[in-house]
């Protein structure tokens, strides 16, 4: 996704002279093409993210289309006040891009994890929260976000993510993609955890005789309420999975929505636990550690369905 981001931004900059990419001293060589072709539209703001975010807000208020790019914790929690005030309060159309989100940088430890961002951003007015799951979905939402006039946070992965939906079928902001059709349980997969959800659905079908639908979600705010309500009419159970804390995550949002609408359907929400991970390892290892890998999804889905069977509905 990282490389797709760099290539797409470079192409967009050639079409939009107002686009400016602000980088927090990362992406060594990643933006060489942009720097070479459009030097005025790239600025290394150094390891000074608070200033970078306010600079972007000032640029957006002056009519430019700034994109702020660095590793997710540093473009979110490191400069949260600048986001809240400069970007959100001023409704300044900055596009904030966090790279290496979730547990992408599991090997770097919790300083480089981002498992709180949905929760934090959801509570801040005016700002849209996007979480594309592959390169094609990133390209589409990025193009929609830049120049849209809406402050937007885009949480992306690192590199090497497989395409889950062909580019021609990639959907935009607020739209979902069904990548496995099913009838028993619906797995709402948020962002880059998609491959785990798909592997789980395939295992449920092949090994357990369970027909699971997989819906890929690219937008955490605003949430499509109608979609969630409609899914409860088609499925006996819902499962949400995200590479993010269960506290304040997408799953909590779905649960709250269903509760407030008096919709009674078994829901299980998978996300990371309320703890920092003190050991290092691969992203796969970290997903297993927190129980959001394919195997954990399979187990949780079966359990959720057993609750559904036992319910009166």
């Amino acid at each position: 996704m990282r490389n797709a981001f760099a290539a797409e931004v470079t192409a967009m900059a050639a079409e939009d002279s107002k686009l400016v990419l602000l980088s927090g001293d990362i992406g060594n060589r990643l933006f060489d093409n942009l720097k070479g072709s459009r030097p005025d539209q790239f600025m290394n703001c150094g390891i000074a993210e608070a200033n970078m975010m306010s600079v972007a807000a000032g640029m957006a208020l002056s009519g430019l289309h700034p994109i702020v790019y660095t590793i997710t914790p540093f473009t979110t929690t490191r400069c949260l006040e600048q986001i809240r005030i400069g970007v959100a309060y001023h409704n300044a159309p900055v596009v904030i891009v966090g790279t290496g989100s979730g547990l992408s940088y599991a090997s770097l430890g919790p300083t480089h994890h981002s498992l709180e961002d949905f929760s934090i951003f959801r509570a801040i007015p005016n700002i849209r929260v996007l979480t594309p799951y592959d390169a094609p979905s990133l390209r589409v939402v990025l193009r929609e976000a830049v120049g849209s006039g809406v402050p937007t946070y885009i949480r992306i992965g690192k590199k090497g993510e497989k395409d889950l939906v062909p580019q021609a079928e990639a959907v935009g902001i607020g739209k979902t993609a069904v990548v496995r059709q099913g009838v028993d349980i619906c797995i709402l997969s948020v962002g880059t955890i998609g491959p785990e959800a798909i592997a789980a659905a395939d295992a449920l079908r092949g090994d357990h005789g369970v027909s699971a639908e997989v819906v890929l979600v690219n937008t955490v705010k605003p949430v499509d309420h109608e979609l969630i309500s409609s899914l409860t009419k088609r499925f006996r159970a819902l499962l949400t999975v995200e590479e993010h804390s269960t506290n304040g995550g997408f799953g909590e949002y779905v649960s709250a929505h269903l509760a407030q609408k008096d919709i009674h359907v078994p829901v299980v929400c998978l996300g990371t636990r309320d703890e920092f991970m003190h050991t290092v390892g691969s992203q796969s290892y970290a997903r297993e550690y927190f129980g959001i890998d394919a195997g954990s999804i399979v187990t949780a889905a079966k359990e959720c369905l057993s609750r559904a069977t036992g319910s009166t509905r």
Partner: peptide, 20 residues
Amino acid sequence: GSLGHGLPMGLGMALASRIS
């Protein structure tokens, strides 16, 4: 009102003058 925001935002505006 929250201190330390005006100069960085102003810097963004000043840079925008040059870029635009």
